[in-house]
C-alpha cells in the first residue's frame, strides 16, 4: 500500500544528493528535516535499492540513506568506487516510484500509566490534558517507523500528535524497562531491551520487539505502519507472566 498519494511526478521532486562519508560509504540525502513525505521517499529508495542492488548495504534514516559497499568490488576500471556506486544507484532510482512503498501494519498492545508508564501523569500535566486523553490521542494516531537506531530494534516513530510533544527528562534513567513506550520531544518510541534513556515513559508493551536469535530478529523495520492499542494490567500480565512492573 502506498504511504502517500503517489500523484507527483518524479521530476517535480528535488534530486537527492550524494555525500561521500568514507572509503566504503556514501550518504544519499533527500533533505534535512523530520518529515513524513521526506521519510516516505527515503523508505521507497532504500527498499528499491535493497532489492535491485543487494550487494550494497542500505540503511534508511529520517532524511537520508547510508550506502555501504566493498570498495574493492566496486573499484571499476578507473578505480573510483564512489562514482561506480553513484551511477548504479541513480540508474536504480530512475525506475523507482519515489513515494510508493509496501509497508507492514503492526498493532502494539500497551498498558498505559501506573507502574508501566510512570511518567504518564507528568506528561498529562505538561500538555494540559487528562491522562486518558493522552492515551486516547496516543492510540488514535497512525505512526510510521522512520528508522531503527540507538539500540538494536529501537524504532523512531513519526506521527505523534504534536500536542503530546514533551521535552526529554532532565535526569535520564539508568534502566528503562524492556518494552517501555515513551515520548521524547515530538517523537515516540519503544525500548526493545532494558536500556538507559531520557524519554518520558507512558506505558509498556508485552511484545518483544527484538531478539537476535529470531528470524527476522526485529519485529519492526523502517517504513512499517504502527498503531498502539490500550490493554489493561491483567491482559499485560497474561501475556508476560512473571514480569512485575
Amino acid at each position: 500500500m502506498p504511504w502517500i498519494e503517489a500523484g507527483r511526478k518524479p521530476s517535480m521532486i528535488a534530486e537527492p544528493q550524494f555525500e561521500p562519508l568514507a572509503e566504503d560509504a556514501l550518504l544519499l540525502r533527500f533533505g534535512e528535516r523530520i518529515d513524513l513525505d521526506l521519510n516516505a521517499r527515503v523508505q521507497a529508495a532504500a527498499s528499491s535499492l535493497h532489492r535491485q542492488l543487494p550487494q550494497l548495504e542500505c540503511v534508511p534514516a529520517y532524511a537520508s540513506v547510508l550506502l555501504r559497499f566493498d570498495p574493492a568490488a566496486w573499484a571499476g576500471a578507473d578505480g573510483h568506487p564512489h562514482q561506480q556506486v553513484q551511477a548504479a544507484v541513480l540508474a536504480a532510482l530512475r525506475d523507482t516510484d519515489p513515494v510508493s512503498h509496501a509497508a507492514h501494519e503492526i498493532t502494539i498492545p500497551v498498558c498505559y500509566g501506573g507502574a508501566y508508564g510512570p511518567d504518564l501523569l507528568d506528561v498529562a500535566t505538561h500538555v494540559r490534558l487528562p491522562a486518558d486523553e493522552v492515551v486516547a490521542r496516543h492510540t488514535g494516531a497512525e505512526y510510521r517507523v522512520a528508522m531503527l537506531g540507538f539500540a538494536p530494534g529501537f524504532p523512531y516513530l513519526l506521527g505523534l500528535d504534536p500536542q503530546l510533544a514533551v521535552p526529554r527528562r532532565d535526569d535520564p534513567r539508568q534502566r528503562v524497562p524492556i518494552g517501555s513506550v515513551a515520548i521524547g520531544g515530538g517523537q515516540t518510541g519503544i525500548y526493545p531491551q532494558q536500556l538507559p534513556g531520557g524519554w518520558q515513559l507512558i506505558g509498556r508493551t508485552p511484545l518483544r520487539l527484538f531478539d537476535a536469535a529470531s528470524e527476522p530478529p526485529s519485529r519492526l523495520v523502517a517504513g512499517d505502519r504502527v498503531r498502539f492499542q490500550a490493554i489493561d494490567e491483567a491482559t499485560f500480565r497474561q501475556l508476560v507472566p512473571g514480569d512485575p512492573p
Binding site: 562519508l21 568514507a22 560509504a25 550518504l27 534535512e32 528535516r33 523530520i34 540503511v59 534514516a61 529520517y62 532524511a63 537520508s64 547510508l66 555501504r68 528508522m147 537506531g149 523512531y156
Partner: peptide
Amino acid sequence: ELVSEATLPGT
C-alpha cells in the same frame, strides 16, 4: 539543528 543520520566507525 541536525536530524539523526548514519554514523560509521571513524566518524
